[in-house]
Design a protein around this nucleic acid. Sequence first.
DNA 1: CTGAAAGCGCTAACAG
DNA 2: CTGTTAGCGCTTTCAG
Lengths: 325, 325
Amino acid sequence: MLNLSHTTVSRALNDSSLVNPDTKRLILDMASQLNYVPNYSAKSLVRNRSYNIGLFFSTLAQYTSPHFFYETVKGVKSGINQHYNIVINDIESFRDFKFIDGRRYDGIIIMSQNEKDNALIYHIMKQEIPLVVLNREVSDTSILNVVSADRNGAYEAVSYLIDKGHARIAVIKGQKGFYAAEERREGYLHALIDRQISISGEHIVEGNYSMESGLHAMRRLLSASVVPSAVFSCNDDMAIGALKALSENKIRVPEEISIVGFDDNGLSQFVTPSLTTVHRHLDQIGRLGALKLMSVVEDGNPYKGEKIFIPTTFIQRDSVAGPSH
Amino acid sequence: MLNLSHTTVSRALNDSSLVNPDTKRLILDMASQLNYVPNYSAKSLVRNRSYNIGLFFSTLAQYTSPHFFYETVKGVKSGINQHYNIVINDIESFRDFKFIDGRRYDGIIIMSQNEKDNALIYHIMKQEIPLVVLNREVSDTSILNVVSADRNGAYEAVSYLIDKGHARIAVIKGQKGFYAAEERREGYLHALIDRQISISGEHIVEGNYSMESGLHAMRRLLSASVVPSAVFSCNDDMAIGALKALSENKIRVPEEISIVGFDDNGLSQFVTPSLTTVHRHLDQIGRLGALKLMSVVEDGNPYKGEKIFIPTTFIQRDSVAGPSH
DNA sequence: CTGAAAGCGCTAACAG
DNA sequence: CTGTTAGCGCTTTCAG
């Protein structure tokens, strides 16, 4: 066609400097005229790259909220180079990790909610596939890890309640053993300690992140010998459950009891009263993780472990007022 | 190792009938012992298949709700064979369709919300890539098309209001030009016509699917010369906006005015009062579309156009009562 | 039933 | 700067 070798064409298409600029332009013009599209399978084979980036969630069943999923995908997508495929999957459904190898994924992002993911994380590390773990802090410092600064977020939320004049502040805890749940509870405790507010054992109640558990937790709080004037719920779902318990008992929010949630899960602004909460920037977490990954996969920078905390944002809505008495 | 040729091994791994069962077992055992994983790039190159299934949304920005996205992905995932990658993208962000070719995708599923998708649909058809269009009915009968039977769903919802004794039933319409919006309005009209209930022009108001538009639409209905006793909103978001307008005016739902929504969008059960609505089985739509696609991509059945309607399910909650007068 | 040989479309190494 | 050659790891003829 242009009387040039295969090789030169390949070089031109890959914008190699080893080819005469004029020839290059000629080839590029011809290529776009012919609507040439490279065969990625062939490219993959010889370059030993798949152009696939895995985005894996712990599960896509009950424990992953649509909002969590959606925000993450959007964030990650915004950080991944257009030439790559984003392959979404849930860890639960992998029968055998051996199918996750470096030839099938150039890099992997795990949106981790569960300690069980560690088995896969370990497998990926062993394969030396560039890996980013989002959302859950992992102890291994050699891993690239982007998480939400939930402890500070909880601290800020509880401090806000204190500023409003509350002194009897209860907490509904999150799922036992979940990293974020511990962090949020820590933030709660430190806020109270720093302001020298006494903590009553009966104001610390168990929850498991479900609405149902929030309902039960709130009922328990209402039957305490001293009823709290404000409640910090470790997530929005439980706060919504708590709202239901209060409505059952004809207790007005925020006039009689104030509530603060956590996550800003997309529902919190629609419940009545709309929920004051702590927004986690899942999109930013996803995006930053993706950019870090691209920097090693695409730009060839060396992979190195790092732990990045993304600050939360406190969102004032209508579920908090000063204490009634 | 086993003193067998490359070829025989390949055949055994692909479960070919051209190999002695005993030899086959031997090879398979050895392979799993060695944790052998085929190189999909090489396989792809020679077989001219990518093992990628594209799942494309019209957009991942504002007009796609997290619930819509999540349910669809889950449904599709459940129908796609484990060996395939599910590659998620949004049509908006494709700069050039030429990168969507049969070598990069063995099949494509479009979750279509917008007529603009037709350009891509046309492109894919021309490339002869097996295609399934979900959610939006396309006129081309040669396409595999799975959609929700919204018209019947709307008919059922409005009939329910009539059964409850309502005679002044208003409608808040969906985004002009959107297929589903037309269908829902048609269902509304036919229910009224079939039961010989008169339709008042001032009871048919515009909306664009946003909460905001529902709010304004409801305000308009409240200032009508005859205020309706029930409202059929063409989606849940607008119904939630309508709820807000009613709460502003201290009008109780369902005691004074009843409301029915559409979609069952995940929020509707959390608002107060919880919203009676029409559930669309997005997961089933996704799953069926995926199964149909696999049947041609994986099982080699011939592609043929078909239009499948998935029935909706009416969900009774707390936003409907009989008319107050 | 098994093996030898060719080739998928591309990039990389080596010569010019 | 350009071309020649080899080869990525697999499947698929075509012969035995």
